[in-house]
Computed example of a mutant assay.
Amino acid sequence: MSQTSNIGCACGKTRLEASGAPILVTECLCDSCTAAAERLAKLPGASNLLTSYRATPSAEYRKDRVRIVSGAQYLGEFRLSPQAGSRRVVARCCNTPLFLEMKGAHWLSVYLHLWPQRTRPKVDVRTMASDRPDAASLPGDIPNLKTQSLSFYAKLLGAWIAMGFRNPKIEVAETVHA
Rank of each mutant, 00 (worst) to 15 (best):
C33Q: 04
S19M: 11
A37V: 06
R62A: 09
I23Y: 10
G12V: 10
D64H: 10
G12L: 02
S5V: 02
K42S: 08
S5R: 10
A37S: 13
G76W: 05
A46V: 07
N6A: 06
L16Y: 02
E17T: 14
A18W: 07
C28A: 11
A41C: 04
E60P: 04
Y74D: 00
P57H: 04
G12T: 12
A21S: 15
Y74R: 04
S52C: 09
R62E: 03
I23W: 09
E17N: 09
N48I: 05
D64Q: 12
E38W: 14
K13Y: 06
L40I: 06
V69H: 05
A35Y: 09
S32F: 08
G71T: 04
K13C: 04
L24R: 13
L75H: 02
D31N: 15
L49M: 10
D64G: 12
I7R: 04
Q3S: 04
I68M: 00
R62T: 06
E38N: 15
G12I: 10
A72K: 00
G45D: 10
D64Y: 13
R39F: 03
P44G: 06
G71W: 00
L75R: 02
A21P: 00
R15W: 08
C30P: 10
E17W: 11
E60A: 15
C30I: 09
P57I: 09
T26D: 08
T14A: 01
R67K: 15
A36W: 07
C33K: 00
V66S: 11
C11F: 07
R39D: 03
I68P: 00
Y74P: 06
Y61Q: 01
S32D: 08
T4A: 10
A55E: 05
P57F: 12
A55G: 15
L29M: 13
E17H: 08
G45W: 01
L49F: 10
G45P: 06
S47Q: 13
G20E: 13
L29S: 12
S19W: 01
L16C: 05
G45H: 08
S70P: 09
C28W: 13
L49C: 07
Q3L: 07
G71R: 00
K13T: 10
V25L: 14
D64T: 14
L24P: 07
G20N: 01
G76H: 04
R62V: 01
A10R: 06
G45T: 12
Q3T: 08
N6L: 12
I23M: 08
S47P: 04
D31C: 08
Q3W: 06
S47E: 05
P22T: 01
D64S: 14
K42H: 03
G76A: 06
A59T: 07
R15Y: 12
C11W: 07
T14L: 15
P22W: 10
T34S: 11
D31H: 13
T56Y: 08
K63V: 03
Q3E: 12
Y61D: 03
Y74C: 02
E27C: 13
E38I: 15
P44M: 08
I7D: 01
I68G: 00
C28F: 11
E27S: 15
V69T: 12
